[in-house]
């Protein structure tokens, strides 16, 4: 199945998620007008989410994202791991 959701992060920017999923998350594309330094971290986050069970809780998804951010030494501006995770769940329900 394909899903899309978008939301304004409180005090932040716009974040969108386009994804393909079945029992697991197969493909994720994170879009929006936020900033990430380095930008590659966003592509790494997308890859790291692939294979996660589709019924994962927001906390587990956010944790996986935060892990990548930490490993990459990245900084997200205008978006948070929690906001991305929340948008992913919305994309799978809307």
């Amino acid at each position: 199945m394909d899903g899309f959701a978008e939301q304004k992060v409180p005090e932040g920017k716009l974040v969108g998620v386009r994804l393909r999923y079945g029992k697991t998350i197969e493909k994720v594309l994170i879009t929006g007008d936020f900033f990430a330094y380095p930008e590659n971290a966003v592509y790494r986050i997308e890859t790291a989410l692939e294979g996660m069970p589709s019924n994962s809780k927001a906390g587990a998804i956010a944790e996986r994202i935060a892990e990548v951010v930490k490993v990459e030494g990245a900084e997200l501006i205008g978006v948070t791991p929690e906001a991305i995770a929340d948008t992913i769940l919305k994309a799978m329900t809307e």
Partner: peptide
């Protein structure tokens, strides 16, 4: 457009 934005959108 910003680097993470969708062109068509």
């Amino acid at each position: 457009i910003g680097t993470f934005q969708s062109m068509r959108k």
